[in-house]
Amino acid sequence: MSLHRRAATRRKVVLMAVAAALLLVWVFPLIWAVIVSFKSESDVLAYPPTVFFEPIGRNYEDALFGDFSILDSLATSAIVSVSTTVLTIVLAVPAAYAFARLKLPAKKSIGFYTLATQMVPPVGLVIPYFLILNKVSMLDTYTGMIIVYLTFSLPFAIWLMVSYMEDIPFEMEEAAFLDKATRWQTLWHIIIPQVRGGIAVTVIFVFLNAWNEFLFAVQLGGNTVRPVTVAMYNFVSVEQTLWAKLSAAALIAMLPVVIIGIAAQKQIVKGLTIGAVKGGGRR
């Protein structure tokens, strides 16, 4: 009995060790980035890398207010991401309700169409968008960028919201109808409050995707619309070795999504698994 237990304990310890090692693989690049971001340029270039050094805040100052300020880019990212998110939710939630619940002609085809639009490779959109926006002089404009961002956020949001809408019992609407609510009132007072959780998940995913988007931003943006992802990229291509400042800037740029990620960890996992768990049953 005790032999068994000791073997089990040893197994647990080994497991923990292996798991912890793998854990380290995932956190290390981030921890290292944090460490580097506090190094002076001379400490950065020390090789082998130093672990003990005089931490400085200079890199963050520079990244925010200095020559390499990314404040403008942060603002741009915020404007584009928030606008995209708001527009996406406004368009996706009613559509998802109709798909999940209502009689709609050609529902299957439209549903397949929405799904299929998710399969379009981004490069297959950035090429025509460049040509089109170029023609109508909308390159490097907020409007253009937000329109483009809808291409990936909207189908995804509709798809995600449909699975939340499907979870609402039919009796909710039936009860509301009997209580003399109109269809709009039912949607507004009964349905939407019950998918608040789903809307939150959708908001998080749409926002994260918009904030992190790079391909459209780098090619269809410019000096006016330059989100942080592009600013980061330019940083490296222009300032080859200012890696401490890059780390600081990148960490600032990623701070919003990291905070959202940790705070909304549960919702994100829910969003990730909804397809895997529900998709198994649905054809």
Partner: peptide
């Protein structure tokens, strides 16, 4: 593990590429 696992997922791929290019893989750095 759940918290740590969230971090790479929420990072912008471009930043991930840059971090690896510099902090992890750059020669002599």
């Amino acid at each position: 593990f759940r918290i740590v696992a969230i971090l790479p997922i929420v990072l912008a791929p471009v930043v991930v590429g840059l971090f690896w290019r510099t902090l992890m893989l750059a020669p002599n750095f």
